[in-house]
Write a protein that binds this DNA or RNA. Structure first.
Lengths: 332, 332
DNA sequence: TTGTAGGCGTTATCAG
DNA sequence: CTGATAACGCCTACAA
């Protein structure tokens, strides 16, 4: 283990000078700088993160908390986060929430000064005591696909997106549209509610009466979607279009429909939500949610907040996009 | 920011005693311990990771490097890793390789003592200089779904798995079996080669002559699978069964086959590889690769290696399993 | 422009 | 059982 002292000795200078070279301090004689850099590479020296963190009072690390559920979706977010961080030379401390129990444990320890410089929480409502602690300790925090009155966040307008999707279905002549979505979220209910609200609003605006039986609860999986479709088709008046709360659910619906001999979109229109990679390949009409962009933007906001701790929180909404493919009856 | 000194003062003891209480040292008077603990909770004290790392000489952090490709697959691995780590109270430093360029950059910096205590590399062959540095600096490292002569690793027997899958197809009476797999991997070629070898061996053992045209290269996506299927079906003697190198590819194949009016498995048998979540829901016959188990086991091996640096490297092979569902002609 | 020394928060050693 | 005190490796005034 080679330390800064070794480098100093090898270069025939003091540790202060080495430190200055390391941090790009301007007032170092070019010759000295060269000598130091030579010693550094020759000795293969790397500054110790731990020592540096202690001395500087910051860790150059940000913590990212992501829930496990809807895995495809949030892996994309994570990718955006990782990419943005890698460019900026920050370390990424990952915590994945495996369940509600985990949640409390993690949030109790999350975003401690001296451990991480900033906190990025993906799709999980932060408990109030976390928020209090964060603001009191002045550690920067950003929420992704969630919101909080006093914290910076980046997300999308799920209500508008769902409404747009429903409107699309309506414009195609469908009057019997069912929403197949999860109904409870262990980490954040807001997204589900927004989507449901969008769906209802769109139908109401079109003068279509609300049918509770068209809003069955589904598990967050293809299997869940398939099962829920069975239930819907058993109704006296089955729907002619399905608006799924997630692409995974939609895939299950499509597959089950085909198994039952129905054609999609001929006999049943199906659309998803999220636009995971498979959606494109399966020709699923869906709502594109800019997942990795949210992650990337979240990091940018976080780094900005870290640089300027006194800036007021902002709330960024990224645009979604209706992606029309084959599963609803319109060719792309 | 409350430090150990504040706690010591508040409890009327020396910092040494507080430190002992913190680390669960046995020889502390119960009364003292209680007083200290009281002060700790009262003040909301948390030890600084940075200071602790500097003093202890370890960071309680392990670094995980995962390639981006085949995303569903490796998110599962990551989940296993994260879960195993969370239980053991270690921080997880994540690096995702976004491409071959990234690879070199990351490997040049990976596993530095003073930054992380151990390194877990998922599915990417470590360059020799990394290995050298690791062993010289005595930092523990474990490979997941890759191997190296001098490093501990956990993986599966891809050759045997592919052979078993091919044998299954053969046993179903198929003689014209094509392998639709990626042909190049920017991070580690070994898995692809092993799978191909397994496929060829199984066919050879069955006395079936090798047809190069039955081994077209595919992109690692559903789209890639679909396109490759088109090419195969244009052959004078098209295959009757497709062995895909990944479930995502298989899904594309199945979908394209149906689009062309073929029934699966009636007109075409298709099987995947990996057993991602969707495979189950889509009834895809596939090879189950224990992804999160590999991650978890990798962490266990790594922690063990960290505790016992002089233990020789081991090579763990986890079992795969042939999962027969509907896509190959046998009901589950 | 460069060297020196104090301090960052903990741990660990060593007397008591 | 407990309290000082020297590391740990680096950064940053302060002097020179």
């Amino acid at each position: 283990v080679v330390t800064i002292t070794d480098v100093a000795r090898a270069a025939g200078v003091g540790v202060g000078t080495v430190s200055r070279v390391l941090s790009g301090h301007p007032r170092v004689a070019p010759a000295t700088r060269a000598r130091v850099n030579g010693a550094i590479t020759r000795l293969g020296y790397r500054p110790s993160q731990a020592a540096r963190a202690l001395a500087r009072g910051r860790t150059d690390t940000i913590q990212v908390v992501v829930p496990y559920l809807t895995r495809y979706f949030y892996f994309e977010v994570l990718r955006g986060v990782a990419a943005a961080l890698a460019d900026r030379d920050y370390a990424l401390n990952l915590r994945v929430l495996d369940g509600p129990a985990d949640r409390d444990r993690v949030f109790a320890e999350a975003g401690r000064r001296g451990h991480v410089d900033g906190l990025l929480v993906v799709r999980a409502a932060p408990p109030d005591d976390l928020v209090t602690r964060l603001t009191r300790a002045r550690v920067a925090a950003v929420l992704v696909d969630t919101a909080h009155p006093t914290l910076t966040s980046v997300g999308v307008d799920h209500q508008a997106a769902a409404a747009a999707m429903a409107a699309h279905l309506l414009s195609l002549g469908h009057g019997r549209i069912a929403l197949v979505d999860r109904v409870n979220d262990p980490f954040d209910q807001a997204v589900l509610s927004a989507r449901r609200r969008g769906y209802r609003d769109a139908l109401a605006r079109a003068g279509i009466r609300h049918r509770p039986e068209y809003e069955p609860a589904s598990e967050w999986s293809a299997e869940g979607g398939a099962g829920t479709l069975d239930a819907l088709l058993a109704l006296p008046e089955p729907p002619t279009a399905i608006l799924a709360g997630g692409d995974t659910i939609a895939i299950g619906v499509v597959d089950r429909a085909r198994q039952r001999g129905l054609t999609v979109p001929g006999d049943l229109a199906v659309c998803g939500y999220g636009d995971i990679e498979l959606a494109r390949h399966l020709g699923l009409t869906t709502v594109h949610v800019p997942m990795s962009a949210m992650g990337r933007r979240g990091v940018e906001l976080l780094l900005a907040a870290m640089e300027n701790p006194d800036a007021p929180p902002v709330r960024v909404t990224l645009p979604t996009e209706l992606v029309v493919r084959h599963s609803c009856g319109i060719a792309p």
